[in-house]
Design a protein around this nucleic acid. Structure first.
Length: 289
DNA sequence: CCTCATTCCTGCGGGC
DNA sequence: TGCCCGCAGGAATGAG
């Protein structure tokens, strides 16, 4: 389940192994993998042949590869997407969706995606920042991310704080796992209402988000199975450091109370019933003039 | 503008 | 043994 740390790990690997290389040919093996490339798979392959990769960039969970044409390849790994560097003679993966071959006959870049939530497209003139992801907020590791603006925007919202953390137009890069981890560290229940958070509480939460993302990058990301791997197919080990996510019934590492699991947006939230008490008023239906 | 439910997809594992 | 169903979940989309 790639979130910012996993995508950043992939970005670093891609940056090392494909920057400066020229694409010879592209093979689209599943149309859904390029569904957001409106002109279609054949066009996707045509427009990339002969182009040189200049850089590998990331915002939140999105990656993009500026090209010497001024365009960029935009990618999102979705739930199960992998970008792998593989020797040309390595057998095709079961869920291989797109293959990039390079002029130098070195390792291929393969987009492998079991559940096909991930997607690649070409952004015209998108080298600086693809227009397709202009609506995505800066992530908290971006040097130009403004803590004060985020806190102000968060407190203007009137929704549950976990929903806000998952809203990529407010702050990007945070998914279900790291939202739960940051909320556990901050001692806040995810159904706390944003406009009732004090400024200092919001700043503390943001600091925990930033810390947990940074620590996870150092660990090479989180993986529960083989679905998230870096470009060499290796799993990260941050899952050993998780305090809340996936720990239902296990003792809270801070107070010992059993971690609880609650339904949330058709998925699960994990929290400590003692460190993260539910707010007295749940829901958003309170406010006088 | 803002918030929220729905939809896409497939392998795995639990239950019967 | 084998089938079915729920679950995992990011983000676009449209409704209200």
């Amino acid at each position: 389940m790639p979130e910012l740390p996993e995508v950043e790990t992939v970005r670093q690997g891609l940056s090392r192994w494909i920057t400066g290389r020229r694409i010879r040919s592209v093979q689209v093996r599943h149309p859904r993998a390029v569904r957001r490339h409106v002109p279609g798979g054949a066009h996707f392959a045509d427009v990339l042949a002969g182009r040189k990769v200049l850089d590998v960039c990331r915002r939140g969970k999105y990656l993009w590869l500026p090209l010497d044409s001024g365009d960029a390849v935009v990618g999102h790994l979705g739930m199960s997407g992998q970008l792998l560097l593989q020797p040309a003679d390595a057998p095709d993966e079961t869920h291989l969706r797109v293959r990039f071959r390079f002029d130098d006959d070195g390792a291929e870049l393969r987009f492998v995606d079991q559940r096909t939530f991930g997607c690649l497209s070409v952004s015209e003139g998108g080298g600086m920042l693809p227009s397709e992801i202009a609506h995505i907020a800066r992530d908290p590791l971006d040097p130009e991310f403004s803590d004060a603006e985020f806190v102000a925007a968060l407190r203007r919202r009137r929704t549950e704080v976990k929903r806000a953390l998952l809203d990529q137009s407010l702050i990007s890069g945070v998914g279900n796992i790291y939202a739960d981890e940051a909320l556990w560290r901050a001692g806040l229940h995810g159904t706390r209402i944003t406009d009732a958070l004090t400024g200092p509480a919001a700043h503390r939460l943001l600091a925990q988000v930033r810390d947990v993302l940074g620590e996870a990058i150092t660990a090479g990301g989180t993986s529960f199975d083989a679905l998230y791997v870096d470009v060499n197919g290796e799993s990260g080990y941050f899952d050993r450091s998780l305090n809340a996510y996936g720990r239902e019934g296990q003792p809270c590492r801070r107070c010992g109370a059993p971690i609880r699991r609650e339904a949330f947006m058709n998925r699960s939230s994990f929290s400590c019933p003692r460190c993260q008490p539910r707010p007295r008023t749940s829901g958003t239906g309170r406010r006088a003039g």
